[in-house]
Design a protein around this nucleic acid. Structure first.
Lengths: 233, 233
DNA sequence: CGTCAGATTGAGCAGCTTCAACGTATGTGG
DNA sequence: CCACATACGTTGAAGCTGCTCAATCTGACG
């Protein structure tokens, strides 16, 4: 479990978490895992595949506010927020596990330390949202793109989905653009710039970071906000 | 306490919360309540005044990621995140209360329901961050500005700081611009447009919403993300 | 009366958008 | 196996949004 990257779990806590998983389901790419406005009775753990949270504007523009990788609890917040204020989309085919809110509630009654770690995982999501805001508001599109690629790399690395400086990133340029809040056309030009300047390679689904230092500098990337550190919580 | 707007508290819970407050302090406008990179031992409850979370880019641009009003727990997340990934600024003179993390920890051990409500309050912060992302990426500057004014109105209304359709908003145009991620010059022109089209009035610190429907339409405002509803959690 | 913070205005420029077309790979039905 | 459809990436051109720089205005305050 990913929570163990943040703090040690006791045997009992680990068992309780494993037992919390009620049912596993496969969802094809392009389908919503969770609909906006719904009131889920379960929270969704992403076992395999990539998912994105998004919301549409009236003009039909889709803003992706977070991308989730295997191991992420994509809508743990619905346990307490009750109503979904955004949707969650399967960016690729996904295998997901449902965790009933009634079970989560029992966990919070019996396992305070585990509760703090679950809480923490939602706080890390929030920290990423803040970082996206800073980068979206303060950097140019190319800086923003560089930042996002750095983030993807580190997050995939912690779950063992990188191979050296390479990783599979199954996002179309249009989806990538929707993360940045720019048009697909502009995203395309930005990516060409990052490639031609030798910072990255991106062919099909394979991204390779050829010059981390320069990429991180362009994206003003500082990993503090990912809070990837094990300490007592 | 503001948490009671989300769910009922028991007598014991209310008392426990009141006892959690260790020390009250006044901070002048313009000073940081919490520094970026610091590792606070206390979390900060805002009793009076306005505060903003922000982060600077290397180019010196300041992006404000959240504005807090009286009653908000401005850095409750530092209880579990440990390291501040952004700073918190006193936008006006503020009266703040410190709540030691050791006390919060005890609360999580003894009061599961109260813990869920504290957790929820950080989730609502996160929901606002996501909404800001959607609006920043998907709307024009004028829509974004309209949205933010709608948000301020509702949040101030719930803490009784509105007077009819008017409220005090002690932000300079430069600070407002830093919330939107645009230049102060452009923010000025946007606000002139909102005024001249009869949607709002903004003189000195006093904002009056003259046409809520039109303002909400321009800002595509839907209050769901504020989760201002009392229900069992 | 001078100073200072904040608001306002103008002009020229850069970044990003839209529209529209075209290339290329993959898949599908006849 | 070919014809066609579809999804994704790429390119060009024209236009708008928001930026920067720089000046001016206003009111508050010492």
């Amino acid at each position: 479990m990913k929570l163990e990257l943040l703090d040690d779990l006791s045997e009992a806590e680990r068992r309780a978490l494993e037992n919390a998983i009620a049912h596993v389901r496969d969802v094809p790419a392009g389908e919503d895992l969770v609909a906006i406005g719904s009131r889920p009775t379960d929270s969704t753990l992403l076992l395999e595949g990539f998912a994105g949270r998004y919301k549409l504007t009236l003009a039909g523009k889709r803003q992706i506010t977070a991308v989730h990788v295997p191991g992420d609890f994509v809508d743990l917040h619905s346990f307490l927020l009750k109503t979904m204020d955004h949707a969650v989309l399967a960016l690729t085919a996904c295998r997901i596990a449902g965790v009933p809110h009634t079970t989560l509630r029992k966990l919070t009654e019996e396992y305070p330390h585990l509760t703090r770690l679950l809480w923490l995982s939602t706080l890390i999501d929030g920290a990423a949202h803040r970082e996206w805001l800073v980068v979206m508001g303060g950097l140019s599109a190319i800086g923003h793109a560089a930042h996002l690629i750095c983030e993807f790399f580190l997050r995939l690395q912690t779950v063992g989905l990188t191979d050296g400086a390479s990783f599979a990133l199954p996002l179309t340029q249009a989806e990538f653009a929707d993360c940045l809040g720019i048009s697909a056309v502009h995203a395309n030009r930005i990516l060409q710039e990052l490639r031609s300047s030798g910072m990255i390679d991106w062919q099909d689904d394979q991204v390779t970071i050829k010059d981390w230092d320069r990429l991180a500098a362009v994206g003003e990337f500082d990993a503090t906000y990912l809070h990837m550190r094990k300490e007592p919580r």
